[in-house]
Design a protein around this nucleic acid. Sequence first.
DNA 1: GTCTATACGGTGATAGAC
DNA 2: GTCTATCACCGTATAGAC
Lengths: 209, 209
Amino acid sequence: MDNKKSEEKKPDTEALIFEAAKKVFGMKGMAGARMQEIADEAGINKALLHYYFRTKEKLFEAVFTAIFQSFFPKAMSIMVNPEISFRDKIEKFTTVYISLIQENPYIPGFMLHQLSTGGTEKIVNLFRESGIKPDFFFQQVEKEIQKKTISSVNPMHLIVNMISMCIFPFIGKPFLSTFLFQDAEAYDQFLEERKKEVPRFIINSIQKT
Amino acid sequence: MDNKKSEEKKPDTEALIFEAAKKVFGMKGMAGARMQEIADEAGINKALLHYYFRTKEKLFEAVFTAIFQSFFPKAMSIMVNPEISFRDKIEKFTTVYISLIQENPYIPGFMLHQLSTGGTEKIVNLFRESGIKPDFFFQQVEKEIQKKTISSVNPMHLIVNMISMCIFPFIGKPFLSTFLFQDAEAYDQFLEERKKEVPRFIINSIQKT
DNA sequence: GTCTATACGGTGATAGAC
DNA sequence: GTCTATCACCGTATAGAC
């Protein structure tokens, strides 16, 4: 993998470390991860980790920030885009959200550990920096209610329901894939189905009949 | 707190440790928790932890098992109870589920860490031991579909949706309470509302009109 | 049963050769 | 930039007095 034109994309140790850290931190969490394991995963030496990222904490923060920014703004920008109709919004959001996590399986692990360990400040800051204001979505919901196109729902609950149904299947993967599915393939298919099922479920619930 | 009749309920060091461990493990996870912190929380000495539970891992397992058994069977038994109508089942399940976690705030933290750390075997075993068969619920869904009382839904997605909407608000508490709510009180009220909102949301979605 | 003191291993981090 | 060797610390676990 080293034989490309060395000009254009050297195997870039930093990126190797980054990927390895994603994986290990995502699986074990900040506290459970071991620098040694990350080094092994990256196929390099432990000391090199400290050469690129001075400390474990800095490495974690770097990876966490990157992960967060790689998905959160993308998903949220859909919700606050004035050009997308309300109904499309729900469909797009769920689909994109699920797809994004499928592509970056470490996201839920990161979020979880970060949340349940109480390290909320970083998330809060990243969120603030992203400049996203959920208010617009709430206003759009209210507008739809006034237009009588949907039944009267509390926007808070609606958005929490939406996020819940998108993200939980990933969190609960080991659990679900043990009890509800035969193999990994069945689980993957289940996720694919959800891209249609979840928006349908939501729209069925709130649409005026 | 020691001045009760020493016969009836001595302050029971073991129970103290158990409670402290619940709290610390729930917040920090197995890897992040420190025996010292548990000892402090229990107001006793570090060595005593090892006297009662030989190792950190044994302590964790004991607490995890107790937590699991204190809520899972109770919630699930509702789902497979043939005497409860389908509609009541959804209402009862969501209400009981949310209430149970409200009373034992450490449950989500435990589950999360256990899930995301990959220690699924314990959960699988505990689940097996509980003797619960989710099949009955699935059958009941199919029956309702045949009776045309609900629209054609995939039972898998239905139950995953239900669990998602119940449990995620707890997982995401730090996040939600930062962005959507002013204070802890508002968050608590939100949870109370959900006991009505979630079943309503589900039933609205699947009922035949 | 409960404490203090200590042994022991693991882990993050650094020094220094190449 | 990358490695080997090593340090210093922290955290689990045990020994032993009371």
